[in-house]
Amino acid sequence: MATFKEFRNNVKPNWCPGCGDFSVQAAIQRAAANVGLTPENLAVISGIGCSGRISGYVNAYGFHGIHGRALPIAQGVKLANRDLTVIASGGDGDGFAIGMGHTVHAIRRNINMTYIVMDNQIYGLTKGQTSPRSAVGFKTKSTPEGSIESTLAPLEIALASGATFVAQSFSSDLKQLTALIEQGIQHEGFSLINVFSPCVTFNKINTYDWFKENIVNLNTVEGYDPSNRIQAMTKLMETNGMITGLIYQDSSRKSYENQIVGFRSEPLAQQNLKISEEAFEGLLKEFK
């Protein structure tokens, strides 16, 4: 057992003051402690962008990869050592633009890991261009006349791709965010948590206040049942995705690694590599 302080290191984040990502960092640290992890058994794999820096700000094993590829790296880590808790994280550009292909396939694959997207509807580190999450008409450096592409609905795509855990939260609600990350870690399978994490520097539209006015916490929706996939899809469509909380969870499906025939139940990383002479001779038979 470790306290959340043990998941802190002495690196000062290079995020702007007020950035939503600070809350995500804190929520990961708290959730990790709350579910009883120790730093050496947590691996945080991140992509590129402001949010991608998060792997360096949590005291754990951190891997800061390349743009859009946090998910395949993270899945490789988990398959190699299934005893590790693996969290992948990045921004909306990382996960829903350059890495979108990996996102839907990671969802389909359902490896036991958690993916946290810090969704600020803009490209921050490159100083303010449109993102797939930007609203139509949103003016940025790359869309001076307003974005003319439709806004991507990642959670609807996730549901359509066979997601077994879909949640959404908001940087201002640390309590809810921490709880959802805990649930995501404990979920057997791939958990997707999209977090509205405002960019205070480049996005003057989707601000903290804007989110507070526009989002609905599912806790306040009477009769909402997160095991009902159709209801989840309907709610997302009705609200244009502006809901927070656990949107959908299917606990019946086994994770990928628990379905692979012959897959070692102990971490592969601890396996003795050399095969026996007898096994080797057996392998040669096919070619004689």
Binding site: A43, I45, F63, G65, I66, R69, L71, P72, I73, A74, Q75, G76, V77, K78, L79, A80, N81, L84, G101, H102, H105, P267, L268, A269, Q270, Q271, L273
Partner: peptide, 17 residues
Amino acid sequence: IAAATMAIGSNYAGVRA
């Protein structure tokens, strides 16, 4: 891209991939 980066992840975590 996923093939190569996944192999990197596995190697990083200690499996020959």
